[in-house]
Simulated assay, not measured.
Amino acid sequence: MVHSSALSVHGGYYADQPGSPFGTQSGSHRQPADRRGQPRHAGTGPVRSLERGLRGTEASPGGAGIRMRREPSRAYLDRAREVFDIETEALARVRDRLGEEFSRTVTLMLEALSRGGKIIITGIGKNLPVGQKIAATLTSTGAPAVFLHPLEAMHGDLGIVARGDVVLALSYTGETEELATLLPILKRSGARIVAVTGNPQSTLASHSDLVLDVRVDREACPFNMAPTASTTAILALGDALAMVLLEARGFRREDYALLHPGGAIGRTLLLRAADIMRTGERLARVKVGTTVKEAILAMTSARAGSVAVTDHQGRLRGIFT
């Protein structure tokens, strides 16, 4: 949508464009006018040129104009499937490279958690939201984890790091300046560092206790620049760690429910009749022999859809709805 009353298309004017010598406006629909101010008819002039422009031109750098290419639907689907193929292939390659370092990472995390420690995820750029998701998955499956922003860490948040904690440091290049600054401080804090990187020879890798290789052959980006396949691989690796830890710690479905009381599983496993039953003034009750009118009034007073009918000993004889 173009929020402007001055829209010029391929040399034509709209009638209400500043500088247009003539032109009319009908209701909320502007009538296009040519350079001489004469209204042009639908299907000709600038309107038709605009339609051709939207169909046939590419997006201009910086979004300076309304120029975009409309390709056949088939081409869009082919490109989308290619992205899936690239990322699926990347995941398969990272999967095949999993080895002893992964197992040692799981053991390191288990030991930290058994001592009351935690898992700390850190990263910046696209790895920031990826790291936050990994931390959330770990925490929701019973492994206490937090995300540490590298910049905030240098201004007080390092207080969250304790000796024996395990730090997952995410950086595909392994040369992220903010992480390189943070690494020595984390080491002095007594934390164990696991590098998650696509460059096992990087600065990050050389300062880490363990290295998890998430190298991918290429990104799904046509320029091989925007993190796509690499961030998918890092996220999948985080999921793998969380699920392996879950099983290794004997985390059960009931434990999951305890951490998700508001979810469907939590309600199914944890909710009891006593948690939702009506008592006291919220329970509508009448004696046997009460009139229908009085029963309805009792329901209305309790804001209920039914009323319990009891005998003189208080025993339930029926329910009136």
Results as ranks from 00 to 15, higher is better:
residue 220 A to K: 05
residue 168 L to R: 00
residue 241 L to I: 15
residue 159 G to E: 12
residue 232 T to K: 03
residue 189 S to L: 15
residue 178 E to V: 12
residue 241 L to D: 10
residue 213 D to H: 05
residue 174 G to T: 08
residue 207 H to K: 08
residue 136 A to R: 00
residue 142 G to Q: 06
residue 226 A to C: 03
residue 127 N to F: 13
residue 197 T to C: 04
residue 163 R to Q: 11
residue 199 N to E: 15
residue 240 A to M: 08
residue 220 A to C: 12
residue 164 G to P: 00
residue 152 E to P: 02
residue 233 A to S: 08
residue 242 A to Y: 01
residue 221 C to D: 14
residue 171 S to A: 14
residue 235 L to D: 12
residue 191 A to N: 15
residue 190 G to Y: 08
residue 243 M to T: 05
residue 196 V to Y: 09
residue 129 P to Y: 04
residue 150 P to W: 14
residue 205 A to W: 07
residue 215 R to S: 07
residue 227 P to A: 06
residue 199 N to M: 13
residue 227 P to E: 13
residue 227 P to Q: 09
residue 166 V to Q: 04
residue 167 V to D: 01
residue 175 E to P: 03
residue 152 E to R: 06
residue 161 V to K: 01
residue 221 C to L: 10
residue 216 V to R: 03
residue 184 P to S: 04
residue 143 A to W: 06
residue 187 K to T: 11
residue 141 T to Q: 03
residue 229 A to W: 07
residue 151 L to M: 15
residue 228 T to W: 09
residue 136 A to M: 02
residue 206 S to C: 04
residue 209 D to K: 00
residue 230 S to G: 09
residue 216 V to N: 09
residue 128 L to E: 15
residue 188 R to E: 15
residue 135 A to R: 00
residue 236 A to I: 07
residue 203 T to K: 08
residue 156 G to C: 10
residue 139 T to S: 14
residue 195 A to N: 13
residue 185 I to T: 15
residue 155 H to W: 14
residue 177 E to Q: 07
residue 204 L to W: 13
residue 237 L to C: 08
residue 144 P to R: 05
residue 240 A to L: 07
residue 137 T to I: 02
residue 224 N to S: 09
residue 242 A to N: 03
residue 208 S to K: 01
residue 200 P to Q: 14
residue 230 S to E: 14
residue 187 K to I: 09
residue 134 I to K: 01
residue 169 A to C: 03
residue 241 L to A: 10
residue 230 S to A: 11
residue 204 L to F: 11
residue 143 A to I: 04
residue 205 A to I: 10
residue 242 A to P: 01
residue 143 A to Y: 04
residue 166 V to E: 07
residue 156 G to W: 12
residue 142 G to T: 06
residue 242 A to D: 08
residue 202 S to P: 01
residue 170 L to P: 02
residue 173 T to H: 07
residue 172 Y to P: 00
residue 144 P to N: 07
residue 216 V to E: 10
residue 140 S to C: 06
residue 133 K to A: 02
residue 211 V to L: 02
